[in-house]
């Protein structure tokens, strides 16, 4: 028996797979966006509204990984967008290998952006690179403005923070400025969009960001 010193992070093999997947998708002109939040924060609702608002402008596909049912995939399909449900077998996060498998089963013709609706929790998905080009996280108003203090890694890894359920702000003591300050302290380059997917408030800014990222990606 020989002792081999490794000092390897456990995610090393996943990191490599993720890098390869990201490159392949870039060559195909597809922007992959990893969408993360706690369960019930409003991922499916945000995606549904975005798909409807951008119909005819950005062709969006969705990979649903949330829990084991396929209700979310059905909701997206009903909007006429390509969607697929991946079963995660009890895993608490999506990794690059699972993302690749999901994508292989998707009709990708003409798609410009694919969202991966990750499994609803704020800890595990942050640790695994899915191969996405952009990471977007959602914080919903009822969860409280102190969430960044509890889940720092998620905020550090995300390019965008969407604060959803803005319409519910009067019922919760949510301090937008405090939430922004806390998120920016962890990640000075994070972009923050407060929205309500119910009333449509703020959706414009978020959608503008999405359009511009998609265009940049296709022309790269």
């Amino acid at each position: 028996m020989k002792v081999i010193e490794l000092k390897k992070t456990v995610t090393a093999s996943n990191d490599r797979d993720a890098e390869i997947l990201r490159d392949e998708l870039s060559k195909k002109g597809i922007l992959l966006i990893n969408l993360m939040s706690a369960a019930g924060s409003g991922k499916t609702t945000l995606l549904s509204r975005t798909i409807t608002d951008l119909a005819g402008r950005v062709k969006i596909g969705v990979m649903e990984a949330d829990i084991a049912s396929d209700v979310d995939a059905k909701k997206i399909n009903a909007l006429g967008a390509e969607s697929i449900q991946v079963h995660t077998d009890g895993m608490c996060h999506m990794d690059a290998g699972m993302t690749r498998q999901g994508l292989e089963n998707m009709e990708k013709n003409g798609l410009q952006a694919v969202f991966l609706e990750n499994i609803g929790n704020l800890i595990c998905p942050a640790e695994f690179d899915t191969g996405a080009h952009r990471n977007v996280m959602i914080l919903s108003v009822p969860e409280g403005d102190d969430k960044p203090l509890k889940y720092p890694l998620m905020f550090k890894k995300s390019d965008v923070l969407v604060i959803t359920k803005k319409d519910a702000a009067p019922y919760f003591d949510f301090d937008f400025e405090a939430a922004k300050r806390r998120a920016l302290a962890l990640n000075p380059s994070i972009k923050i969009f407060p929205v309500s997917a119910k009333t449509g408030e703020g959706m414009d800014e978020w959608e503008k960001w999405l359009i511009s990222e998609t265009e940049k990606h296709c022309n790269a």
Partner: peptide
């Protein structure tokens, strides 16, 4: 259960290491 995924990734990583180093079996 986060640990489940982590163990899978430990094993994937060990397979890579085994290939690089010509390892036949891992004892610990």
């Amino acid at each position: 259960m986060h640990e489940l995924g982590l163990v899978k990734h430990v094993i994937y990583t060990l397979h890579d290491v085994a290939k690089e180093n010509g390892v036949k079996h891992i004892g610990s």
